[in-house]
Design a protein around this nucleic acid. Structure first.
Lengths: 124, 124
DNA sequence: CCCATACTTAAGTATGTGCTTAACAATCAG
DNA sequence: CTGATTGTTAAGCACATACTTAAGTATGGG
């Protein structure tokens, strides 16, 4: 998997800025919207009771961490999602979680086995 | 999937506090460590050049958003991961990303088809 | 040219976050 | 009981974040 090339412009570790971007509910709503297709700044601003500059600042956060791409055409800026960056965060979580669940499955299997000497075919 | 019962004690939306917790590299390192198995506060503190109170504050953030569970036995507090909460964040990302990638696949397929009238078996 | 549209920039503010040090428990071993 | 281990609480500080308003720029229609 070649998901290690993140477009991060924050100086921080890529995961820092991606998760940071995802913490804000306004930004998550924008991401959900952009996953349905590209949109202009005004389109994205419409659902929120917030000044335009605030919206633009959120979009900058999303662009700086690589979650979205934007391009200005005429006087309209078109914003689109970058799925690879969503997947990047997703992959970290999955890689993190998997060994934990395997451990717990083994533990569960051990506890459920009435046979006290049950060495669960070596997996360490 | 019954992943909607999050143990969030922050007043914010569950996703807010989970992603917020994940932004900090120290906390992510703690999560990675705990995915290998439970550990005490001192164990978790060992790798970091940081005061103990700072470590404890990080652990409180992780516990308040439901990413870890802790229990004090004697004078030692044992910390363990809660995989369901990792999966909760993961699921949000996947649910978010999937429609975006399907859109892009359809677009790609359309662009690659030399036949200009190619209605990609209805999927809207 | 003129004006509305669609942002953009700059500056300021309130609150949140990630640490620190200092002092305080609580447990266990000898 | 004494003292070392393991954590906890409180207070404070530096910086980051999420807004705001006010003013500016650039494009496109009439």
């Amino acid at each position: 998997m070649l998901n290690n090339q993140q477009a991060d412009h924050s100086g921080r570790a890529p995961l820092d800025s991606v998760f940071q971007a995802l913490t804000d509910p306004t930004r998550r709503a924008m991401i959900v919207r952009l996953c349905q297709g590209p949109a202009s700044v005004s389109d994205l601003a419409a659902p929120f009771a917030m000044s335009l500059p605030a919206i633009v600042q959120h979009l900058q956060v999303l662009e700086n961490c690589g979650l979205i791409h934007t391009e200005k055409i005429g006087r309209v800026r078109s914003c689109s999602i970058v799925p690879a960056t969503l997947r990047f965060a997703e992959n970290w979580l999955a890689a993190c979680r998997t060994p934990a669940e395997r451990r717990m499955d083994r533990l569960e299997a051990f506890l459920e086995s009435d046979d006290p000497s049950n060495p669960q075919p070596e997996d360490n």
